[in-house]
Amino acid sequence: MEKTIIEKETEIVEEFSLFDSWDDKYEYIIDLGKKLQPLEEQYKKDENRVRGCQSTVWLVADEKDGKIFFKAESDAVIVKGLISLLIRVLSGHTADEIINAKLDFIQKIGMTTHLAQTRSNGLLSMVKQMKNYALAYKIKNSTTV
């Protein structure tokens, strides 16, 4: 059975609790960033860009069997690592689950400061964009039914 968003968040919080220092946290995030599946070139276009980020971030969403799947890439590796965490948590869930996700793990792993900052690493913009995609699919599905 697929894990819930909350379960995945808890997993991440546990992983991060193992790190003693910020350096270790960043090493891990950078590692995740480097391992993030590259986005196919055809998706790297203006309409897929997330606004409000200092780095360039592309984000695309696809729906399959009522579940939404995300793919993303950035030219900055820490941002890529953070996207990778967001994708891990939100990808494969229904529009409603994504829209209602509180994403407390972001604060729990100590990335709140980034969220609070306007346009610093764009985490807030990415979350918003992912939820917007979910909302768009929800509206699309409700009008086609």
Partner: peptide, 13 residues
């Protein structure tokens, strides 16, 4: 091969 933003975050750290 580095993005200014990554450098900035790590320096802030």
């Amino acid at each position: 091969k580095t993005h200014p933003q990554d450098i900035g975050i790590l320096l802030d750290n």
